[in-house]
């Protein structure tokens, strides 16, 4: 059973003084996220990531479409007991301490009284806030608030967790801790759906990603598949600083760095390149297909969308 099934969710806002001018925030979106996946939802600012998350959380209402979460209708309030949500740049009741806030959220999530304090304590420990649990949130830094946000999202042991820009406001150590936490959640069998701008995080963490731009899904797939698209090129690396003439004759772009040379050639010339290195007795270090990075894939999808939009005008 998929953890998330988005069935044509669409959102159009009506803007202007008379609310008559339509502004499409999300075009019909169809997306399935399997149980136990870490799924990255990528896109530039204003792409529709947060709108999608708000639709799934029931914070805004769709113009059309529906969704199923954990096999149940997404409007069913009881399904929310199994869901955790971290909004973008979260803000909390700053008159409460971290401990009180988590207790409050645990009460709202229906965590039984006997279990509540143990759960709050262990969650505070998990996000590294035990030492400041008695401090009012108005005294917390942005990074600490982000940790509180993560804590409240996982507090009730949900099966499905939504994070909207979870790395936002965190220092490199904090980012790493959140990455580790997401991996732990995956190992615990939970499904993690997160939106981010930080492609390296997505590349390192996600099983699959989707790219959204201008409210429209532009690409979706396993990270391994998206980053292994070979464009008919191979990378040859050998030891030394000498570039044989026969290698140049193949049309290779060669770059000397220290005592290694890196060349990119057409895939069908790799045998000729190996022969050239053998003839010159240059030790081959590596011969690997050129992989598209997630960033390159992302940029390409966005550029293609811009070009399509431009030619359409």
């Amino acid at each position: 059973m998929p953890a998330i099934e988005i069935l044509g969710l669409e959102k159009t806002y009506f803007v202007g003084f008379w609310r008559k001018r339509p502004k499409c925030a999300l075009r019909p979106l169809h997306l399935t996220v399997e149980d136990g996946e870490i799924f990255g939802f990528l896109g530039p600012n204003g792409a529709g990531k947060t709108t999608t998350l708000k639709l799934l959380m029931g914070l805004v209402f769709p113009t059309s479409g529906s969704a199923r979460l954990l096999g149940r209708d997404w409007t069913d309030p009881e399904v929310k007991a199994q869901i955790g949500f971290l909004p973008e740049q979260p803000y909390f009741y700053d008159h409460l301490t971290a401990n009180e806030l988590l207790n409050y959220y645990a009460q709202l999530s229906g965590v039984p009284g006997k279990e509540r304090s143990r759960r709050v304590e262990s969650t505070l420990q998990r996000v590294g806030l035990t030492d400041v649990k008695g401090v009012q949130l108005r005294k917390f830094s942005k990074g600490m608030l982000q940790r509180v946000g993560i804590a409240q999202a996982i507090l009730h042991d949900p099966k499905l967790v939504f994070f909207d820009e979870p790395m936002s406001g965190l220092d490199p150590m904090g980012r790493r801790e959140v990455r580790d936490l997401m991996e732990q959640l995956k190992h615990e069998g939970k499904t993690v759906f997160f939106s981010t701008h930080i492609l390296s995080d997505a590349e390192a963490l996600c099983d699959r990603v989707a790219i959204i731009h201008q409210g429209e899904l532009r690409g979706i797939g396993a990270v391994a598949d998206l980053t292994s698209s070979v464009h008919g090129k191979v990378e040859v690396i050998w030891q030394g600083t000498h570039v044989p003439a026969s290698m140049k004759a193949l049309g290779a772009e060669c770059h000397v760095t220290g005592d290694t040379v890196r060349a990119v050639i057409d895939e069908n010339q790799q045998d000729a390149a190996i022969d050239a290195l053998r003839r010159e007795r240059l030790p081959l270090i590596a011969l690997t297909p050129v992989r598209t990075s997630l960033e390159a894939y992302f940029v390409e999808k966005l550029q293609r969308a811009e070009t399509t939009a431009g030619s359409g005008k």
Binding site: K54, M57, G58, A81, P90, Y91, S109, G110, H156
Partner: peptide, 14 residues
Amino acid sequence: EKRTLYTVLSRPVR
């Protein structure tokens, strides 16, 4: 305005 509501209504609260 402060978006404190997001973390309340994303729970089983009507």
